[in-house]
Amino acid sequence: MLTYIARRLLLLPVVLFGVSIFIFGVMSFLSPYELVSTYIKSPEELKNQSLDALVEKYGLNDPWHLRYIRWLGNVLHGNLGYSESANMYVLDAIKQRFPASLELALFAVVPVVFGGIWLGVVSAVHHNRLLDHATRIFAIIGWSLPSFVAGILALMFFYGYLGWFPPGRLSAWAHEIIASGGFRQYTGMNTIDAILNWNWPIFWDAVRHLVAPTITLAWLWWAFILRITRSSMLDVLNKDYVTTARAKGLPERLVINRHAKRNAMIPVTTVAGLMVLGLLGGMAITETVFDYKGIGLLTVQGAQQLDYTLVLGTALFYGVLLVIGNLVVDVLYAIIDPRVRLE
């Protein structure tokens, strides 16, 4: 297994090289005057004829392989460059924005997994009966919703109508406490930092901002967990030991809770890991809707402004995340299920 892990990790530099070449390659289609648009956001800003000065200032006139070599040199020295759209160094931007997204993903996993399992069990137990169809259709509708529609509706309801769960990550007063230095940010994840600072008002404030996006994500992903739970439940329910348990006259509830559920959980748990990755990858839309300033939102805004320094930086970061994340999932799966052998 170690050789397998090593081989997969060896792939990492190749992936990162591929990713950066791809982005640089695509960007090479742009002329210097297209690249300069990063620095001028609308026609209204075309005040004096300084396009040439800007092109010169940022070295946009150089051929792309030169820019690539320059960029690569900087990266090897640990400098991912300065992002015009984020107004900070790319490395800082990732360091500060990624924990936000991770926090949301981790929060969302809980209701997705538990809700999904519950729905899956209900559906399996009532296999091919009305309740089965109803839960499945409910979950599949969520799976079929454009995530931004679900998100906006949730925001309208929970914030606009009820006034409960505001957009953003924290309320103004909490931001002020943090900016005044009364609160140390250890991880960048507000809930965890609040516990570490023993600051419960901020903790509750952070949780309050996480609820609406979490509920939205949950509905979108339930069908995914439901399907896996349901099929492995059905599989288990047909197994001999369950039939035996039933034959022994155990009440159905006990049969399901004691015997069936536990064994059906194995594939579900491994999938949960994969889901965190999936959530992180598709977070841009949810973050946009809830004005949740995470890495997805950052990247999308950067890419739209052709801020290639930022795009490259975050793409590399995602590359690392995906390679390592996928590896962890594979290894976990092999550990849990001995039938799987890593080739």
Partner: peptide
């Protein structure tokens, strides 16, 4: 800085 107009309107409303 909030990009979505809908969100800004909601923030004002609340």
């Amino acid at each position: 800085y909030v990009e979505e107009a809908n969100t800004r309107m909601l923030m004002l409303q609340t």
